[in-house]
Amino acid sequence: MKKITVLPTWCFRDDAGNQLDLQLLRLLGAVYRRGKLTQAAEDVGISYRHAWNLLRQGSAFFGVALVEMQRGRGAQLTPLGEKLLWAEQRAVARLGPQLESLGSELNLAIAREQQGQVSVLRLHASHGFAVELLPKHLTALPLDLQYCSPQESLAALNRGSCDVAGFHLPRGAVGERIRATYQGLLKPQEHRVIGFITRTQGLMVAPGNPLCIQGVASLTAEGVRFVNRQASSGTRSLLDCLLSEAEVASVAIRGFEVEEFTHSAVAAYVAAGMADVGFGVQAGAEKFGLDFIPLAVEDYLLACHHHALKEPRLQSFLEVLSGEAFQQAVQALPGYRPSRCGEVMEVESVLDVDSQSE
């Protein structure tokens, strides 16, 4: 079945109606990575001459050079060139989850128009690199994927608004407070838990860790600028627990109120030099060339109604999760590992609660 992907695009237009060739943004990214215009042009798939023309057009459009060429030192972005590059990266990271959800809705509508009534798996979960893999592997099963917080996902499961809901449980003592928040939402007699993945969370810092940040206590150091996740996210809940455990007051952290909505957006914010440190998954840090300080390992789990496990769509879903192809894809993500992936468990074994506590 054909699937549609929704991607964000830019349009730069000046007062005279002139538009910028968006291939320039790809070229700037390649210059940043490679440090040489010849190699950057090869990466983008254009000639060296065309690369020069793009840079000249860009400089004429903005009235400022975007790349500096220095003999013996290759090419490097000017401050405006870097700002353009990171602005695009942040925008893509911010819009990505919403556009993925929109793409999911469009693909579902297309399938219904082409095939009539179709069996759909409705998954509500927080955005993450492993969840992003699911649409690519569930090729035979239409997936209605909506991104939301763990509490919102589990509430949707209880309302009957989704079939599968994602939630996080940090390992160790730091996860006890988060574990308690799920006890009213996960019901041992009604629900079952499906194993999914583990992921490592920690601090994302500039390459070389120039401010010598060691842990959450370093976030209050003079001059350190922090970028946060939104208050409803599972990652924010984990950070709050780590701060409480270390007796670090959030009001003492400069930038604690600055929020981004994905791990990639946090990483892009730090990579752009707008903050010195952010909190998120290792995969996000490595994607943007940042150093990573691991602080916690958490289980990312899925929940469903026990009666749904008999349905073909859930059986197909479990087969994909337990399959070698999906698990190898997870293994390729830095800091991610399959963990009892596709295995069905009792709620009590996960939350360690009395089965009569409903």
Rank of each mutant, 00 (worst) to 15 (best):
V174C: 05
I197F: 08
K136P: 00
E88Q: 12
E100K: 07
A173Y: 05
A30I: 03
V227L: 10
T38N: 12
F62D: 01
V193M: 01
Y147S: 12
L102S: 02
R13K: 10
E260I: 00
E113T: 08
I197K: 02
S339P: 00
A75S: 15
L134W: 03
P334D: 03
R26I: 04
A246M: 04
E222A: 14
D14P: 02
L143A: 13
S232I: 08
C304G: 13
G284Q: 06
F292S: 14
V92S: 01
L203R: 05
L318C: 05
P79V: 04
E113G: 10
L108Q: 15
L108E: 15
A265H: 02
P97K: 03
L169M: 13
R71K: 13
K2Q: 15
V258M: 10
G223T: 11
D240S: 12
L318R: 00
P170T: 00
A93L: 07
R122F: 08
D163W: 02
H191E: 07
A217Q: 07
H168D: 14
G255Y: 01
L290V: 06
A252Q: 00
G72T: 00
E132G: 15
F167V: 07
G273F: 06
S264A: 15
W52G: 10
E298C: 10
I253L: 02
R71N: 09
A283W: 04
G289V: 12
G278Y: 03
Q151N: 12
S59D: 06
K3R: 15
A267L: 03
S237P: 04
M1H: 13
K36M: 05
I293E: 07
E100G: 04
Q39Y: 07
L138K: 11
V347P: 05
F279I: 08
T181A: 10
Q117L: 15
L302W: 04
G166H: 02
A155T: 14
S264E: 14
E286P: 08
G255N: 03
G184V: 03
V44Y: 06
L143C: 13
G96K: 15
R179P: 10
Q327D: 01
G166E: 00
T181C: 12
S232R: 10
E88C: 05
N107H: 01
E176V: 05
S47T: 08
A180Y: 07
Q115S: 14
T220Y: 04
